[in-house]
Design a protein around this nucleic acid. Structure first.
Lengths: 197, 197
DNA sequence: CGTCTATTTGAATGTACTCAAAAGCGGTGG
DNA sequence: CCACCGCTTTTGAGTACATTCAAATAGACG
């Protein structure tokens, strides 16, 4: 089981860098497996994000709560995705992201401290995280543009294309909190669309 | 003049990594200075972003044009900022960002090819760009949250705090295109605010 | 000075929100 | 196994924030 998870994370890394068996072993040693049951938290706002998490099964979500008590979802992380509160993780200061589990989830944790040590010892890992951070940056930019230029209906369609496997897993309320509309309005949009299509 | 620009970029880099004089010289050798006059383009959508630019004087802006012809500004880059079309730069495929000059601007260009070579030769540079990409990611995330949770007036206030030096330099129209409102509405908000304050 | 673009102002409109209530759905315990 | 409870989703009426369109004014640049 744990072995299978290790294969998953090594395959994920192998998309961008090549590791020797010794480097793989060194890396695996730094990982802490953890199970997060549905509705339990991996991280709370006002905590420091000591780790970055790699999801091997299940699905996490990262969200903030604004001054009016509304949730805004920044990211869903199904299997094979990385997730953390980047601000808190890189600064090691108190953050503002909550990360909890939409369903029972398994992750492998890598601490910032171990990550930085790894960067010193094996520069290929710094390359790997440089690359996935560049890619995250591109997604984040794309999402910002979508929010600025698309209507709610178009953002919903974009979401369905981006997370096709999750549409039937994630409560509608949380999809609404991702695309930036009220749950009521998302419901109305869907009613409209099913009339037409 | 060029020497002063080199000092600026070396100081920028020195915030995150320490270079030997030889490494500094190697790096400086890779830079191409360029002047972009007001309203001229550093990059057009449908081009490949071959370079990342470091601004030494003036101010650039990066924006997209959506299907309805509206501009959306992703970033302003005054002196001491880095700017590129990240998607196009890392993939070396055709992008969708335009980058032009708000005022006469001087930049130092580093090509993707030279950057990647530098990463192989001097891993400290990979660290530097890893760090600034992490920080860009944090800003991008913060801006997304602001767009999801704040009113137009609050986003304008946030903008004024984030780019305090630019408020009197940048045309209002382009501030509107950054915070995500029409120029007319920004004008009305300002009229309201000046009545009260 | 004249032209072109940016900004202001106003009236009408629309997209999405608020508040309220009903219906649906899933999990839990008797 | 079914009934109940809590939470999610639906539906509706009224509202608000921001847009659209139009026209006037102000400003910048050659």
């Amino acid at each position: 089981m744990s072995q299978a998870n290790h294969q998953t994370i090594l395959a994920n890394i192998a998309r961008h860098i090549e590791l020797t068996p010794a480097e793989q072993a060194r890396f695996i040693q730094l990982l802490t497996p953890k199970t997060i049951k549905r509705k339990q938290f991996l991280l709370n706002a006002q905590q420091v994000a000591r780790h970055v998490a790699f999801v091997t099964a299940g699905c996490l979500r990262a969200y903030t709560i604004d001054d009016n008590g509304f949730e805004h979802v920044l990211q869903f992380a199904p299997a094979d995705w990385w997730i953390t509160d980047m601000y808190s993780f890189i600064s090691q200061h108190e953050g503002d992201l909550n990360i909890d589990a939409i369903e029972d989830t398994e992750v492998l944790l890598l601490s910032r401290q171990d990550q930085l040590q790894l960067f010193d010892d094996i520069p290929k890992f710094e390359r790997f995280f440089r690359i996935i951070t560049e890619k995250s940056m591109v997604s984040s930019r794309k999402r910002l543009i979508d929010n600025l230029s698309l209507t709610a209906q178009e953002r919903y369609n974009t979401f369905c294309n981006y997370y096709p496997t999750l549409i039937n897993t994630i409560p509608q309320k949380q999809i609404a909190a991702y695309i930036g509309v009220t749950p009521e309005f998302l419901s109305k949009m869907r009613a409209q669309a099913s009339k037409k299509g």
